[in-house]
Design a protein around this nucleic acid. Sequence first.
DNA 1: TATGAATGAGTCTTCATTCAT
DNA 2: AATGAATGAAGACTCATTCAT
Lengths: 203, 203, 203, 203
Amino acid sequence: MSESEIREPIQKRSIETKEKIIEAGFDLICNDGYYKTNTSKIAKKAGVSTGIIYQYFKDKKDILLSGLDKYADDIFYPMLNISNVKFDKENFIDIIKNMINKYISNHKLSKTAHEEITAMAHSDKDVAYFFYKREMDMTFKIASALTESGFSITNINEKVHIVIGLIDNLCHEIVYHKHNELDYDVMTNIVMAEIVTILTKKD
Amino acid sequence: MSESEIREPIQKRSIETKEKIIEAGFDLICNDGYYKTNTSKIAKKAGVSTGIIYQYFKDKKDILLSGLDKYADDIFYPMLNISNVKFDKENFIDIIKNMINKYISNHKLSKTAHEEITAMAHSDKDVAYFFYKREMDMTFKIASALTESGFSITNINEKVHIVIGLIDNLCHEIVYHKHNELDYDVMTNIVMAEIVTILTKKD
Amino acid sequence: MSESEIREPIQKRSIETKEKIIEAGFDLICNDGYYKTNTSKIAKKAGVSTGIIYQYFKDKKDILLSGLDKYADDIFYPMLNISNVKFDKENFIDIIKNMINKYISNHKLSKTAHEEITAMAHSDKDVAYFFYKREMDMTFKIASALTESGFSITNINEKVHIVIGLIDNLCHEIVYHKHNELDYDVMTNIVMAEIVTILTKKD
Amino acid sequence: MSESEIREPIQKRSIETKEKIIEAGFDLICNDGYYKTNTSKIAKKAGVSTGIIYQYFKDKKDILLSGLDKYADDIFYPMLNISNVKFDKENFIDIIKNMINKYISNHKLSKTAHEEITAMAHSDKDVAYFFYKREMDMTFKIASALTESGFSITNINEKVHIVIGLIDNLCHEIVYHKHNELDYDVMTNIVMAEIVTILTKKD
DNA sequence: TATGAATGAGTCTTCATTCAT
DNA sequence: AATGAATGAAGACTCATTCAT
């Protein structure tokens, strides 16, 4: 029906406007949730009119998706930057530990963001697809890093994927759940040991 | 003063009405998602009037919470029933395997339900709290079962919690993601082995 | 998507509400035009809330269509009532004359209504279809009336249809255009004579 | 004071720009309807910026009106060209037949255009006025042509006007309605005969 | 107890028009 | 003379909740 073309900004001013909308919109969605964020709030926060939003974005969700493109790596995959550091047998444990810490501190930074976005990833197919791809990307990247660092691991993708899940769960548990009955230092050590086992054991 | 009290049904008919609302509401929410389910649909499906809903429930979310109370165990923790089966060293692997299969088939049965509810668990604090408690319950139950079956495991709660997470991730991956690049049989075997390692290794 | 069922009113109150909305909506559309009439004006004029509109009507156009169902005969086909009067060779001219007068006076009564609705009939496919059917209905009715009154006319439907068009044009011209250069009495006489010729001439 | 004057283009380029806007705008309005055509689509189709539109046109409707000035004769009064051909008693029927055919084929060429513009003529007073004048123009032109061709007809304007209406109705019926119950060949013949009667009968 | 009619604030989105460049 | 970014009021429609019966 409405073939109102989405404009790809050319002028500097409009590029800035688009960025402002993404930033404001993503920020609100991360803090308040997708359903509690409305376009007028986004416009207000971005300091623009509501109308302009629909010149740069197909709809509200498009803002979220753009925000993910722009910020998801920082929020969800901060370890990818660390992984530039070469893995090697000696600093292996430390690097993993580092990744976990980085991951946790990052979760803490944007506590609600993780939750709100994760919620969307479970209920919205576009967001789900976004993460579906990212997860594989990350898996491959880490697998490559390991291989390049001299590790020779069978079924490496499967194993890395499992490891990422382990870390994810651990961090989530630590940041959000705070089950008093669990000892997180112990848990972290178990997970760390597990990771080592998975990645080094011959099968 | 004139706070409209939520009625706790006493008569049989009232109880049935309340149950019908819970069932209809939870079913719709599981299938379509919380935000796409409205109270009029729920009333229609339950065969009651919209007005009556607010005599048994505080608000729409209250229906979801009630539904969780009633159905969550079946949907999210089907292995708890299996766990009545005693663990022992010999059938240990089989039982785990069974749990995983049960878990997967259950996920498949109510594919969207898991996703929609998980989404809520990440964005709504009440639902989050519900699962926060359930997770610990399940952890303790399984830990007890293991202990009663003669296993002697240090830091058992932490380990079981990690194991549950492993299984959860695996099932989710298998049911929803279907990353073509991953071999799920291999992945399942790795996870299985991992579980055994975690639960049996002396630390 | 939105399966918000349209309610068929049961209670007396709701039937009245629905009628009020149709009346208010159709009246506004007839006076101001479809595009200048908005749902909140309709609600206000009907003395109801905007929300209730969408329990009885699919959308704004549904109100128009309902209005047509209810009022179109009075506005567009007032001659149909007259046509109950039997045609016969003697009072034939008088009856036609009567029809034309009735038609004209009716046009004058609801001057803008005719125009706005005619506009819609030319731009909206649903409204077009509504009149598509009505036109044939009217043609058949008049044709039957003629036949029953003893007229024996070949190709009667075609002829009646043409006659209706002639009357329509004449009335429209008289009511709306008022071309000063034309003598409407003369014109009426010509049209009348023409009608007689068409309906009585053997071909 | 600071009324933004509408510019009358003098330079060749400006004139071309204005023409492009008229063409694009009128084309879109004819195809999609006035309300479904927005200025940004017009600008895009014309290959100009939205801003420039308001330097040549007072508002959106001004474009439509300009389009009518430029194209209406071709679309709505194609027979006027034919009427250059002299009427005479011998080829009279053929010329009328020709006019009808030309009219019909023209309607078919721009099916939606006729409908959309007719709709506007019934709902917008400016467009209505445009056609109000054109109708008389055409009536006079054809009347003159007939007179010049040696016909001597009383009340010629009234008669020609009625004839035009007959043709209009016929064509509209044939092109848009397609009532299966009507035989259009028969109908055309009746109308043709009628026209001859009207224009030749002494009264 | 129960009904279902009614509310009205709130949502996303559109678009003619203006304005800074 | 021209651009295209920006405006913001207005529109159709939704829905959790309340209320009259």
